[in-house]
C-alpha cells in the first residue's frame, strides 16, 4: 500500500515507513535515545530527499522526547535554569543552522554536508562508545569495579568568566560553555535533524560536570524546545517538514519505544551500549559508502526556485 508524501512529493510504501518508525522507536526506547540520528539516515537510504529527511527528523524527535521530558519534569530532575541557558544557545544555533541549511541547499551542497556530518559524528561517537563499552565489559569480566564517572576534577572550562550559580546541579559555572554547547546542538538539530542528546549528555557529564541525575532531564528539556522551534523554522524557511511522513514515524515510533524500554530493562548496560555503538557505526559506514562509491547517475536536476 502506497501513500503520497505531499512535501517530499513522492509515493512511498506505508509499511516501510511504519516499520522504520517502529524499529527506530524500539531502539530509542531500548537505548534511551531520541532516535533522530537513526531516522534521518534511514529516510535518506529510502530515497526521501535529505532536506525533507532532516526537517522531518527534527519534528519526529519532538514526539519521541516529550514523554521522557514530562516524566523528568514531574520527578523534578530538570535543572530549569541550566536548561534555559542551554535553550538560549540552542535557539540561536537552530536559527543560524536553518540559514546555513538554506545556503547549502542553494549551493547544491546540502546532501553532501548532511552525509559528511553524519559520517563524522556517527563514526566518532560509535567508535568511542564501542571502545568504552568493550573496556567495561572486559573489566566486568575481570570483576574490577566499574567507575561510571571519574571524580570531579575541575578543568579549564571552570576557569572561564561570567559565572552563574545553578542550584539544582550544585554548580558555579561560567555561562559561556553552556551557551556554546546549546548553540552547537541547535545547529546540529537544524542541519542533521537530531535532538543532539547523544552529544549533549556526554558533554554535560564530562565537560560541565553536571550531576548525572539531572543530565537526562535537563537535556530533554532543551531538546523539546529546540526541536519544536527548528520544526517551525524549517517549515517556514525551507518548506521541508512533511507532516504525513512525520506523523507515520511518530505513531509507529512511540509504540515501538514502549517495547524497546521493556527489552532494554532486561539487558546489561555495557552490552546495550556495545549494541548501540555497532548500530551507530553501521549506519555511519553505510552513509560513508554512498559518498565514496561511484553514483549511478552523476547528473542531478533541481527544478523550481532552488538551484
Amino acid at each position: 500500500m502506497t501513500i503520497y508524501l505531499p512535501i517530499a512529493e513522492l509515493s512511498v510504501n506505508i509499511f516501510v515507513i511504519l516499520g522504520m518508525g517502529a524499529a527506530v522507536g524500539f531502539l530509542s526506547g531500548m537505548f534511551g535515545v531520541g532516535g533522530g540520528f537513526l531516522i534521518t539516515p534511514l529516510l535518506i537510504f529510502y530515497n526521501i530527499p535529505p532536506a525533507v529527511a532532516v526537517a522531518t527528523g527534527a519534528n519526529q524527535v519532538v514526539a519521541s522526547s516529550i514523554s521522557g521530558a514530562l516524566a523528568h519534569f514531574r520527578r523534578g530532575t530538570v535543572d530549569i535554569k541550566l536548561g534555559c541557558m542551554l535553550l538560549i544557545g540552542g535557539l540561536l544555533g537552530a536559527t543560524a543552522g536553518v540559514q546555513l541549511f538554506l545556503m547549502l541547499r542553494r549551493m547544491g551542497q546540502l546532501d553532501l554536508i548532511i552525509s559528511l556530518l553524519y559520517v563524522v559524528f556517527l563514526g566518532t561517537i560509535g567508535g568511542l562508545m564501542l571502545l568504552e563499552s568493550v573496556n567495561s565489559i572486559r573489566r566486568a569480566a575481570r570483576n574490577e569495579p566499574v567507575s561510571a564517572r571519574r571524580p570531579g576534577q575541575h578543568n579549564w572550562i571552570h576557569r572561564l568568566p561570567l559565572k552563574m550559580r545553578f542550584k539544582r546541579s550544585k554548580l558555579y559555572l561560567s555561562v559561556i560553555p553552556v551557551l556554546v554547547l546549546g548553540f552547537a546542538i541547535g545547529v546540529l538539530t537544524s542541519v542533521m535533524g537530531v535532538g543532539g542528546g547523544f552529544i549533549m549528555v556526554p558533554a554535560m557529564i564530562y565537560l560541565l560536570r553536571v550531576p548525572t541525575n539531572v543530565v537526562i532531564g535537563t537535556s530533554l528539556f532543551q531538546i523539546i524546545f529546540v526541536t519544536a522551534f527548528t520544526t517551525i523554522v524549517q517549515a517556514t524557511t525551507n518548506y521541508a517538514v512533511d507532516i504525513v511522513l512525520a506523523g507515520l514515524l511518530m505513531i509507529a515510533g512511540v509504540i515501538g519505544a514502549q517495547y524497546g524500554v521493556r527489552v532494554g530493562q532486561r539487558m546489561r548496560g555495557e552490552q546495550l551500549r556495545a549494541g548501540l555503538a555497532l548500530l551507530v557505526l553501521a549506519v555511519g559506514i553505510r552513509l560513508g559508502l554512498n559518498l565514496v562509491l561511484p553514483p549511478d547517475e552523476i547528473y542531478s536536476i533541481v527544478t523550481g526556485s532552488f538551484g
Binding site: 512535501i7 514526539a63 520544526t231 517551525i232 517538514v241 506523523g247 511518530m250 514502549q258
Partner: peptide, 25 residues
Amino acid sequence: LAHQHSLIYGLLAVGFALFTGWLSS
C-alpha cells in the same frame, strides 16, 4: 498549507508531535 501558511503548518506539526508523544505516555 505548508507553502502558503507555513507558520500554521509548522505549529500544527509540532502540536501533533507533542500530542502523539503525550498520548503514548
